[in-house]
Simulated scan of single mutants.
Amino acid sequence: MSVAIYQLKYPIGPFTKPEPLDGRVVASAIDTIASFPTKLRLAVATLTSEQLDTPYRPEGWTVRQVVHHCADSHMNSFIRFKLALTEDAPIIKPYYEDRWAELADTKALDITYSLILLDGLHARWAALLRSLEPTALKRVFIHPEQGKQLALDEATALYAWHCEHHLAHITTLKDSKNWT
């Protein structure tokens, strides 16, 4: 992969686990998760249907697919968090995000539906996260594809990164196309 394509694929860089992963880092990650729907809504507010159907990089998803992907991914994550909080080290179910991105609702549906979904989902997710004691954030789920446990504090940081990562796909595309 060329450097230019890599930078388009990872405009904020790949996820790295914050060290130390302390209460301050987790609180900041929760704030990012809480504010994401508003930031996303602002980033796409003025885009036309044609612009929404523009890929953010060669062979990448369109902006429309990215918005719907965030709803899909974050719904899955929220459920994983709740499983980890109510079961002992549950094995989560992975999903084929690339296949989900090719379904009709992701490729063609108005993004308003996913924006509304993200508003409610992120409000609940942030409220849940803010209610947790530090020990609860050490609870884990097991990702079978990766064969490892993921603690909720690290998953919180990962999904804060995921929010910023996909937001940057959209804002970087807008900047490169001079879509103000």
Score class of each variant (00 low, 15 high):
38 T>H: 10
64 R>N: 05
113 Y>D: 09
125 W>E: 03
42 L>M: 08
94 P>H: 11
103 L>F: 08
115 L>V: 04
83 L>H: 11
80 R>P: 01
79 I>A: 09
115 L>D: 07
168 A>T: 02
12 I>D: 02
85 L>Y: 13
128 L>P: 04
64 R>P: 02
167 L>N: 05
133 E>C: 06
138 K>C: 08
151 A>K: 08
171 T>D: 04
87 E>V: 08
180 T>I: 13
73 S>Y: 08
46 T>R: 13
51 Q>A: 09
71 A>T: 00
83 L>N: 04
114 S>L: 07
157 A>C: 12
77 S>L: 03
33 I>R: 10
59 E>G: 06
122 H>N: 13
20 P>A: 06
64 R>Y: 05
53 D>F: 00
96 Y>N: 14
137 L>Q: 10
138 K>H: 10
93 K>M: 11
113 Y>F: 13
41 R>Y: 01
173 L>C: 05
124 R>V: 00
44 V>M: 07
5 I>W: 12
180 T>M: 06
72 D>M: 01
55 P>W: 01
80 R>C: 04
35 S>R: 09
68 H>V: 04
96 Y>F: 12
106 T>D: 09
168 A>K: 07
154 E>Y: 01
174 K>R: 15
142 I>T: 06
77 S>G: 09
89 A>K: 15
82 K>W: 01
57 R>P: 00
10 Y>K: 04
39 K>G: 02
109 L>T: 12
80 R>N: 07
146 Q>N: 07
110 D>C: 09
70 C>W: 07
64 R>E: 03
133 E>Q: 15
46 T>V: 06
140 V>W: 01
73 S>G: 08
176 S>H: 09
66 V>N: 06
112 T>D: 14
46 T>S: 14
6 Y>R: 09
173 L>I: 01
19 E>H: 12
65 Q>A: 08
32 T>D: 12
126 A>Q: 06
53 D>N: 15
5 I>D: 11
11 P>L: 02
14 P>W: 00
86 T>F: 06
133 E>K: 15
10 Y>V: 01
48 T>I: 05
10 Y>F: 15
131 S>Y: 08
36 F>H: 11
157 A>F: 00
13 G>R: 06
150 L>M: 13
138 K>T: 12
86 T>Q: 12
105 D>M: 12
46 T>N: 12
180 T>N: 14
28 S>I: 01
100 W>A: 09
108 A>T: 14
39 K>L: 11
118 L>H: 03
60 G>N: 01
27 A>L: 05
105 D>K: 09
100 W>M: 08
130 R>W: 10
61 W>V: 11
69 H>E: 03
44 V>Q: 04
115 L>K: 05
34 A>S: 10
125 W>S: 07
38 T>S: 11
57 R>K: 09
46 T>C: 00
86 T>D: 06
78 F>I: 01
173 L>E: 05
62 T>Q: 08
